[in-house]
């Protein structure tokens, strides 16, 4: 079945770009912030090996990595009494992606050589000062590539929100299929949009990485 140029326009611009994309971007932004908050807090706690909490967060990370994203989302959807499909999706994706970010940041903190911690301890520098002025900036530098990679996964992962009826890109596509029944075109456009999003982020990430490096380590750092 052939699609007219007008149909292409309707699918690509009216349905996907104008209606679907904004919500996908909102999902990305919301769960990015949520995941960063969880990841930073959890990563610091695990990096400092704070007893009990460290073990609990370890279990949390293992669970999130072991359970399919869709199941986590469905679980939140089932137990949450309040909240739109959007906010439930943001929460679920934040929790899932936060677990990965936590592990990345924990790894970064553990990779900062013990010597700097000791020098700080020997001068009685308070732990929060050491963390925020010395350790975390260096962790950002080390963990940046992994974190950017994770954000790409986060972007792709937002499509899971379609399963609970959140009207983001994928869901819009599924609905459009009923009208146009041309999977190649409809899903093809979605694929292209996601690809562009992720590619743009990767490019942006490289530039940010260079900026961060210069900010953290000064010029001429290889």
């Amino acid at each position: 079945m052939g699609l007219s140029l007008h149909d292409h326009f309707t699918i690509f611009f009216t349905i996907l770009i104008k209606s679907g994309l904004p919500l996908t971007l909102k999902l990305v932004l919301g769960s990015f912030l949520g995941a960063c908050a969880i990841g930073l807090a959890g990563g610091v706690i695990r990096g400092l090996k704070i007893p009990v909490l460290d073990q609990i967060l370890g279990l949390y990370a293992q669970l999130c990595r072991g359970i399919p994203d869709m199941l986590v989302l469905l679980f939140f959807y089932a137990v949450m009494v309040y909240g739109s499909t959007y906010s439930i999706s943001v929460l679920a994706i934040s929790v899932i992606q936060g677990a990965y970010m936590q592990e990345i940041i924990k790894g970064g903190i553990l990779s900062i050589d013990k010597g700097q911690w000791e020098a700080a301890r020997a001068m009685s520098l308070p732990v929060p000062v050491v963390l925020f002025r010395i350790v975390i900036p260096q962790v950002m530098l080390i963990a940046m590539p992994a974190l950017i990679g994770q954000v790409v996964l986060l972007i792709k992962g937002t499509s899971v929100a379609s399963t609970i009826g959140c009207l983001e890109l994928t869901k819009r596509g599924v609905i459009a299929m009923a009208r146009f029944s041309n999977a190649l075109v409809v899903y093809g456009y979605i694929l292209i949009i996601f690809f562009i999003l992720c590619h743009a982020l990767t490019m942006l990430g490289r530039r940010v990485e260079r900026k961060v490096t210069r900010k953290v380590m000064g010029d001429l750092y290889e």
Binding site: D113, G115, Q116, E118, A119, A120, R121, A122, M123, S124, R133, I134, P137, Q138, L141, V216, M217
Partner: peptide, 19 residues
């Protein structure tokens, strides 16, 4: 408190790399 009065210099310098 006492540490503040005791300076230590390590073999590996241990400067803060990002400062």
């Amino acid at each position: 408190n006492i540490r503040k009065h005791i300076g230590i210099v390590f073999q590996s310098f241990n400067l803060f790399d990002n400062l």
